[in-house]
Design a protein around this nucleic acid. Sequence first.
DNA 1: AATGAATGAGCCTTCATTCAT
DNA 2: GATGAATGAAGGCTCATTCAT
Lengths: 215, 215, 215, 215
Amino acid sequence: MHDNHSPPLKTRQRLLVTASRVFAEKGYQDATIAEICEQAETNIASVNYHFGDKENLYLEAWRYAFQEDSRNHPSDGGIDAAASAEVRLAGRIHSLITRISDPDSNFFAIVHKEMARQTSLMEKMMAQEINPERQALIAIIKELLGHNATDKQIQFCHASIIGQCFHLLRAKNMKVSSENRCYVMDLNDADAFAEHVVQFSLAGIAAMKHANIKP
Amino acid sequence: MHDNHSPPLKTRQRLLVTASRVFAEKGYQDATIAEICEQAETNIASVNYHFGDKENLYLEAWRYAFQEDSRNHPSDGGIDAAASAEVRLAGRIHSLITRISDPDSNFFAIVHKEMARQTSLMEKMMAQEINPERQALIAIIKELLGHNATDKQIQFCHASIIGQCFHLLRAKNMKVSSENRCYVMDLNDADAFAEHVVQFSLAGIAAMKHANIKP
Amino acid sequence: MHDNHSPPLKTRQRLLVTASRVFAEKGYQDATIAEICEQAETNIASVNYHFGDKENLYLEAWRYAFQEDSRNHPSDGGIDAAASAEVRLAGRIHSLITRISDPDSNFFAIVHKEMARQTSLMEKMMAQEINPERQALIAIIKELLGHNATDKQIQFCHASIIGQCFHLLRAKNMKVSSENRCYVMDLNDADAFAEHVVQFSLAGIAAMKHANIKP
Amino acid sequence: MHDNHSPPLKTRQRLLVTASRVFAEKGYQDATIAEICEQAETNIASVNYHFGDKENLYLEAWRYAFQEDSRNHPSDGGIDAAASAEVRLAGRIHSLITRISDPDSNFFAIVHKEMARQTSLMEKMMAQEINPERQALIAIIKELLGHNATDKQIQFCHASIIGQCFHLLRAKNMKVSSENRCYVMDLNDADAFAEHVVQFSLAGIAAMKHANIKP
DNA sequence: AATGAATGAGCCTTCATTCAT
DNA sequence: GATGAATGAAGGCTCATTCAT
């Protein structure tokens, strides 16, 4: 331990890394702690020691994935806060789609799987981790819609943007043979799709705004 | 079936009805054969007898749900094929969102849950059942984008529309306490949201089209 | 199955028989369902099928043991209800001690083990199964003590009798090497001890009665 | 230990105190090392360090409980050795029942739980710790029965007395809801019950003695 | 056509014990 | 002398599937 070599990750850390990957791949149910422990090169009982039970390991791994993803891809896309609303929106959309399409980013993969379950964990995670980013996006939308915008309009536009971005998750998760490749988006096009979502959404928001002004 | 008093549904039929509901509620994994059989008022062995195994019951129940939903909510939204592309698009978006938000429609609920898994079933279902509707929607988008549209543009616009619609599935499935109700859309707003998606998407598509023409 | 040979006991029945014996030997905790199933020549899952879980198997086996013991050794000791209170008391004491000392009687062995746990099961079993016999014994004591007896006196005398009988349970359960055999009672003396308890208790009760009368 | 301000109890001592209490409450099986260590405010490994394994901690804690109880409630009940046999018997019965009913006395609680197991530990504890008190009680009984008494009579009378006293242990350990309180003795009546046992037993012994003399 | 009974594989969890500081 | 971390063995439970009527 005195040398420069990086020491082997502590068991707890290895479990977090492995679990976030495995849960992202298979979801809570299909992932077994036996499998996670095998890949983390530790024994089954260590889950109980470090995390109590499977569900808590799941929660901690999920949070860990969020932190890792946030670190690797800042949610503002690296855009200056002083930039125009359009540019800031583009930054956030690109950041979101990058996180979603990056095969090493596990957070949204877990989100996607978790939303298919009927648990209250998703709500907890939204309130604790996702909400700040959500509010930041909503603020930009509000700015773009102008002061005549109703809450419903803001919510709907937000839904439109998030919905488009999350579509990539489906592509990421769908297993398709080569002949049916046409049904899903190519993850290599993520950047192009992000740009599309930006333009598509800016036009959509603008249309909503004008609809407000005219009458 | 020829007599006047409706006979009790045959076991096989009862299993299909029940299974499509239970699978829609809980997904493949969390739904147990025992539970389905109990609700269908038959014995466990009948699944094996009528459907071979759980996965096949799942597939058949899924198909059954598709047929039921298609019957209840025609995919063209009841719009005349001679109507304008804008109107036909609106018809399809409304139809899709109606199917998604209807608590008695099970097909898309199963789709949502299934997409979180890593199976090839989704691909099969797309190729066999969903593709016709998909092609119809793509044709309308193509028409709206004009003859300069690239395949990628068409695919992206299709993704934008589908993505927005599917966002409702998330709202439908997320369990939230009253205090966090703000995070999800109100399913009662489904119609209003559908109208929003129509306007938002028409504007988005138009923007894509002009981008093609100008340069 | 058409022949005269006794058919093999049904799995459920075999589980009851085996479980009541194993639980009597080892108590709830130390008995494993694996062991019970092995001895009952069935598989582990059958416990879940027939009884739900281990605790319910325990309860059912306990009840089964009670019924068996009651059938083999009637609680009144075969004494006519018209006999004198002294004789009826003797009958009940002999019956109780017989049940306790009989190595094939499992009910009181389970009772003994169960009383060492802090569960509410013992209470349930008392209320449901044991109470009638308890009331019968109390009635006889009341008769012997005469009408001046207080409730406390009756309760105490009942405790004295039960306490003496249960002492055999301790002897039955204690594992002692030959050199320390002196510490425990010989189960072969059960009848003699029963007669001792009868005489000892009649004298005790009589003393209590006179104590009441004199002052 | 030589200074004036009492130092915090050493780990070993804390473990003994805690373990004797926890084992008395839950028995050997249900008490976990983790629980004991948590309450003793030390770490799990310390049990192995100080006592080798769980069973040895159990034995030491049990012995510790015996010493504590003996110190708090002398087994002769504080009666002068020159007193009459009747008085000395009363002293011992009162002492025994006091130890049994005292919620802070752990020895007999452990005895009670241990007798439900099939171990040889009870034998060891009898030979090493309990036997002197047992012999003292037997001597008194012998004295009361007179020189015609057989060994069997002495053993039986001893069993009758011990059996009655131990009955309180059952009351102490049984969890009963208020409606079924009638099934168990009130621990607050311990003194009254002790007096009852004295009178009941003296009468019983006397009856045995006369039975010997007459024929 | 239908069913009560049975089964084996797999999973999560617990816990006493031991290892390495 | 003391401890945080790690481990293997074992137990109870679930569940899809199959057997035997």
